[in-house]
Design a protein around this nucleic acid. Structure first.
Length: 334
DNA sequence: GTCCG
DNA sequence: CTGGATGCGCG
DNA sequence: CGGACCGCGCATCCAG
């Protein structure tokens, strides 16, 4: 099955295009990559059976991208991609994952300092060559160094099983605070994904200050990224980050929905909202300036004409179509 | 680059 | 010191 | 064919 290999190439093409500030193509390549990743069928098999036209029928894949898939299946290479790799001989596997370093800055680092991999990036940062560059600064340089450490240590994802006990403990502690009216753990934890990037707590409270103080002084906190009245962010000794956000009750449902994700699911929901002449954000569902839903997830889904979707299914893999037709599968509870 | 109207 | 532009990241 | 492509917040940097 070559779907994943091809998807990866498309992600990298998207990155190269972003480096050159090409408009909209990156989006197209990312979408194609995403579709390919989630595709049940093997593209090679599709091509064998249905030829070029078969490829073209895959959503997000048109004339040009279909040609590139064909080229890859025939020759094992994509010329367009090879040229970009030659132009920017950068180790994207290493560099793409560094937080705070995107395509634009990557391009500058490559052109001004010749940085092509993680080791060179680290050396340049330590030698303070990065801060003086246009668009960078002291702070950015420091952040890059910290991001490198983070990438080295953990690759940025954690197993649900490893962090769930810690999260539960924190959850219980926060819940017992008298200022906390309601608390939920959202994000990929709520969706029960096997790996978790970071942990997000949402809270309803009229008096956030003590909650924030408590949160940033929890045992196991090794770094406080930031602390305000509505949001605080920390790094735990196990290496993962936790955020907490305090919200008003009237938009709590919208925030639950938004922060639970997935990203793809949210985008799909927003599109549906647009089709209905509405606007969905983390603050609520709006008709013009009027908020027509926001306190609960259920009313948001309902106003969008669909059933409430269990978090585990929110991946934009068909659950939205099913919910619109009121044909969601029942999740087996075990 | 792809989709939609 | 401020406002605006940019890059990046979040779901 | 021409226009849209999710929408937002934050940190940072730079120009004034």
């Amino acid at each position: 099955m070559k779907n994943q290999e091809i998807a990866k190439i498309f992600y990298e093409i998207a990155y190269f295009l972003e480096m050159e500030d090409v408009k909209f193509k990156p989006y197209a390549y990312e979408k194609a990559a995403l579709t390919l990743e989630g595709l049940e069928r093997d593209v090679e098999e599709i091509y064998k059976k249905e030829g070029f036209e078969g490829l073209r029928k895959i959503p997000g894949i048109g004339e040009s991208i279909a040609k590139k898939i064909e080229e890859y299946l025939k020759t094992g290479k994509i010329q367009y991609y090879e040229e970009y790799k030659k132009k920017y001989p950068i180790n994207l596997d290493e560099l793409m994952g560094i937080e705070g370093l995107g395509p634009k800055r990557m391009k500058i680092l490559y052109e001004k300092l010749g940085i092509t991999n993680l080791k060179e990036l680290e050396e340049a940062a330590k030698a303070h060559k990065i801060a003086p560059l246009y668009g960078f600064g002291e702070k950015t340089e420091k952040n890059i160094l910290e991001a490198i450490e983070f990438a080295k240590r953990s690759k940025g994802r954690f197993l649900l099983g490893d962090i769930l006990p810690i999260v539960k403990e924190v959850y219980e502690k926060l819940k017992s605070l008298k200022e906390v009216e309601r608390i939920d753990a959202v994000g990929s934890i709520r969706r029960m994904k096997e790996t978790i990037g970071d942990v997000d707590f949402l809270v309803i409270s009229k008096n956030p200050k003590p909650i924030m103080d408590f949160f940033v002084s929890l045992p196991g906190v090794i770094k406080v990224w930031g602390k305000g009245n509505t949001k605080a962010s920390v790094r735990m000794k196990e290496g993962f980050d936790m955020d907490i956000r305090v919200l008003p009750r009237r938009s709590y449902g919208a925030a639950l929905q938004y922060f639970t994700g997935s990203k793809e699911h949210n985008i799909a929901l927003r599109k549906i909202a647009i089709q209905k002449g509405l606007k969905l954000s983390e603050y609520g569902l709006f008709k013009g300036a009027e908020m027509i839903a926001g306190e609960s997830e259920e009313e948001i889904y309902e106003k969008l004409g669909m059933d409430w979707i269990p978090p585990e299914l929110r991946e934009d893999r068909g659950e939205i179509e099913a919910a619109l037709k009121h044909k969601l599968p029942k999740i087996i509870d075990y």
